[in-house]
Simulated scan of single mutants.
Amino acid sequence: MSRLSSVSSATRTPRPNAGTKGVARPEREAQIVEAGCRLFGERGYIGTSVADVAESAGISKPLIYNYFGSKDGLHVACVQHASGVLVSEIERTAASGTIGFARAAVTLDGMFRLLEPRPWLWRVVFDATAPREGEAQAWLAEHERRIIDFGREGVAELMHLSGNHDDLDIDAMRAAWESIFRSLVNWWLDHPGDSPEEMTQRCLRIFTTVFGELDLAGTALG
């Protein structure tokens, strides 16, 4: 029961940042979002209920409705959090100064290491059971545009190194790289026996087999 429930609304108005059982509201919301991300990621939108999230977070269903309004409102908050974490990692590796295949290797390695303790973050963003319309999808579309921009930048650098400056070639290669990137992450999540380090080395072996010897001199992984 909330500490505020025992206080008459006539004598005290709940503070906007008040939480429950001595926990500040921002901290409690973060706890609920973390539990929601894990369940939405593991079970999908369709397979997850507000009751499931409440039980996992150790709080009541009414509190979730009070904070987020509905299951969709909670899902939006989870999508915003998960996509923000993934995009921040891509931004970090994009700013690493690496180019060509070295940048591809650093980006994949960073994503594997980020997801190892919380693989469900990826599943939340790429959940096939989630609603196709609404605020969550609008948020994802905006983040996808940012990811595409980073992908295009990296692919353009790689193509330019080979002397190819054709914009359509670059765009086609960007689409191919995006598919490869997502497929490799999905494959790794479906094969949890590989550590991030082992999966990065697997990717490098695949790239070497397909493209020949790679120039990764000075590339810091991990």
Rank of each mutant, 00 (worst) to 15 (best):
residue 3 R to E: 15
residue 6 S to T: 13
residue 6 S to Y: 14
residue 11 T to R: 14
residue 15 R to N: 05
residue 15 R to W: 06
residue 16 P to M: 07
residue 19 G to D: 05
residue 20 T to M: 08
residue 25 R to N: 09
residue 28 R to T: 08
residue 28 R to S: 15
residue 30 A to M: 10
residue 33 V to P: 07
residue 33 V to S: 10
residue 34 E to K: 12
residue 34 E to Q: 11
residue 35 A to T: 04
residue 37 C to K: 09
residue 50 V to W: 05
residue 51 A to L: 12
residue 56 S to I: 00
residue 57 A to V: 07
residue 57 A to K: 03
residue 59 I to V: 14
residue 64 I to F: 10
residue 66 N to G: 06
residue 67 Y to W: 09
residue 67 Y to S: 02
residue 71 K to V: 05
residue 72 D to P: 00
residue 75 H to T: 01
residue 82 A to N: 07
residue 84 G to Y: 09
residue 84 G to P: 04
residue 87 V to G: 01
residue 88 S to V: 00
residue 96 S to M: 01
residue 111 M to E: 01
residue 125 V to I: 11
residue 126 F to E: 05
residue 135 E to I: 08
residue 137 Q to M: 12
residue 141 A to I: 01
residue 145 R to Y: 09
residue 154 G to A: 13
residue 159 M to I: 05
residue 161 L to A: 14
residue 162 S to C: 10
residue 162 S to T: 13
residue 162 S to A: 13
residue 166 D to T: 11
residue 166 D to L: 09
residue 167 D to R: 14
residue 168 L to F: 10
residue 177 W to E: 11
residue 179 S to N: 04
residue 182 R to E: 09
residue 182 R to Y: 04
residue 183 S to C: 08
residue 183 S to A: 14
residue 185 V to L: 14
residue 187 W to T: 04
residue 188 W to L: 08
residue 196 P to A: 07
residue 197 E to H: 08
residue 198 E to T: 14
residue 203 C to D: 01
residue 206 I to D: 12
residue 210 V to Q: 12
residue 211 F to I: 02
residue 211 F to C: 03
residue 213 E to I: 00
residue 214 L to V: 01
residue 214 L to Y: 02
residue 215 D to F: 03
residue 215 D to N: 07
residue 216 L to N: 06
